[in-house]
Simulated scan of single mutants.
Amino acid sequence: MSEFLEIGGKSYPVAHSPKGVTLLTGGELFLADVRDEEFPQEIHWVDGNLHLYHCAFRKLPSPLQVKGDLVVCDCPGLELPADLEVTGNLSLSDSRMRSENLPAGLAVGESLYMANCGFRKLPSDLKVGRSIIADESGLQELPHGLSLPGSLIVSGTAIARLPERLRIGSALVLKDCPISELPDDLCVGDSLDLSGTAVSRLPDELTLQADLFLEGSQVEQLPDRLSVNYLSITKTRIREIPPTTRVTVSLFANFTQVRSLPDSLSQLTELALVGSAVERLPENLQIDGDLFLADSALRVLPRKLSVRGTIYLGGTSVPKDGVPQDSRTGADLTVDWDWRP
């Protein structure tokens, strides 16, 4: 039998049991502009999604289980309770919470969203079922042995080192972090983004299923047998791409000292070598999109070349009569002789 409980001057249905009170949401409940500082402390279960918008609550009851998503927006004075369990997503990105600490015993069934928040560290006993999205947050350190089946996005934070035994099932994004080295036992399932970092060496046994972004980093060498969909080494110190490298979609090597590409990179969707030192392209190169060579050192195109998009040759020494016909169709290739960065 359900009864009613007053929150912020409005009555909401609840269910009583010997273990406590359940707030009945009908699937989803929005509490907005509630000026009460005290959330009813007898509530220990919420049976659906709970949204708190522009509320004056200072604390939630402990323990508390939200059977769905918990979304906190513009509640600066709120502190989350110890032993909070959210079976769905916990979204704090727009919370404006002044607290610098997440509570002990926090468990999130899906993903934790805390971008632009002031939280400095994660609880050592934190449990997250999918991903942590914490870009541009106050995060300074990660707990030892953190393991996520999804992604860890901490770009633009103060993270300066990674813990040992870090396991990320999908993407690890460290863009613009003050980090200079990676642990040798780092395990990343899909993608790694080190753009703008001081990292100079990649783990020897690094294996990725999707993408590697190194633009503007200090990385000097690629590991052998690297196989990715997208590879960006733009504005790095990398001078050579190993012959065992495999890229299935796109390679971006703008403004690098790479002088040649291995034959293993002869089929791509997009290839960008703007302002590079490249002098040789693979014979029988096939590009399904655009080929960017403007301001590169290239003087001669391969005799067998197929590009379905446009070839950008502005600022190069390639002669206009040195463009072959498309090796797949026999048609004239489309060339832009003017565009330069």
Rank of each mutant, 00 (worst) to 15 (best):
F255P: 00
E240H: 11
R58N: 05
T25M: 02
E136M: 07
L92I: 05
E240K: 14
L182K: 12
E215Q: 15
R167T: 12
G169W: 09
N101L: 15
L23Q: 08
F57N: 00
I311C: 01
V219L: 04
E37I: 07
L265I: 04
S147K: 10
L182I: 13
V21S: 07
P149M: 10
G145N: 13
V86W: 08
G275S: 04
L172R: 06
T334G: 07
R328C: 07
I179Y: 07
T310F: 09
G145C: 13
R299Q: 15
V249L: 10
N49T: 05
G109E: 04
P223D: 10
I153G: 01
G48R: 06
S95D: 01
R280N: 12
P13C: 08
R98P: 00
A331W: 10
E240L: 08
D69A: 06
L298K: 12
K175A: 12
P40S: 13
L50Q: 05
L122N: 02
E3I: 13
Y12Q: 00
A331F: 09
L212N: 02
Y312S: 01
A331N: 08
S306H: 02
D263Q: 10
T25L: 00
T256H: 02
F119T: 01
R328K: 05
S93L: 09
T256D: 01
G109H: 09
D74K: 10
V318W: 07
T207Q: 14
D204T: 15
G48M: 07
I168R: 08
R161D: 11
L261I: 13
L78H: 03
T207F: 12
G8Q: 14
S2R: 03
T248G: 00
L122W: 10
F255C: 05
V307E: 01
P242S: 03
P319M: 11
V199R: 00
E164H: 12
R201C: 11
T87N: 11
R130L: 12
T316E: 08
L305G: 00
P163C: 05
D211M: 09
S276C: 13
S111Q: 06
P183E: 11
L142F: 06
T334W: 13
L70I: 14
